[in-house]
């Protein structure tokens, strides 16, 4: 069941265009995303998409009719900086060698099958 997600995601890249286009004032970021798959490693520009998670206010209503809480712009900005630092730290942590080994094994196993 968990493999069903891709059925509607026809355009694979840029990853963030869809999300960015839903937010206010984010259209200018779209072009920055278009070549992100060319970067071998994690690379974030100053206008990180963490903003999309914590940097913007909205008042969207879900099915239950509960409004999303609003934050003061200053608090939003603070939260955006804090959360971005947190995300950047995690994303830039080195990947343990064991995963490289595991992926190589999985790939070799797959090759044997065929």
């Amino acid at each position: 069941m968990f493999l069903r997600v891709q059925t509607r995601a026809v355009v694979a890249r840029p990853l963030r265009v869809q999300a960015a286009s839903l937010g206010a004032n984010s259209g200018s970021r779209m072009s920055q995303r278009e070549n992100q798959h060319d970067n071998p490693g994690p690379c974030r520009d100053a206008e990180s998409d963490v903003d999309g998670a914590v940097g913007s206010g909205g008042n969207d209503v879900d099915g239950s009719g509960v409004d999303g809480a609003m934050l003061d712009p200053k608090i939003q900005a603070q939260l955006g900086r804090v959360f971005r630092a947190y995300c950047d730290d995690l994303i830039h942590q080195p990947i343990p060698d064991k995963f490289t080994v595991l992926l190589a094994k999985l790939e070799a196993k797959q090759r044997e099958k065929k």
Binding site: V54, G57, D60, D62, G68, M70, Q76
Partner: peptide, 10 residues
């Protein structure tokens, strides 16, 4: 999703 994001932020 948007509503949950707002809640999560707050």
């Amino acid at each position: 999703v948007k509503s949950r994001l707002n809640r999560a932020r707050a």
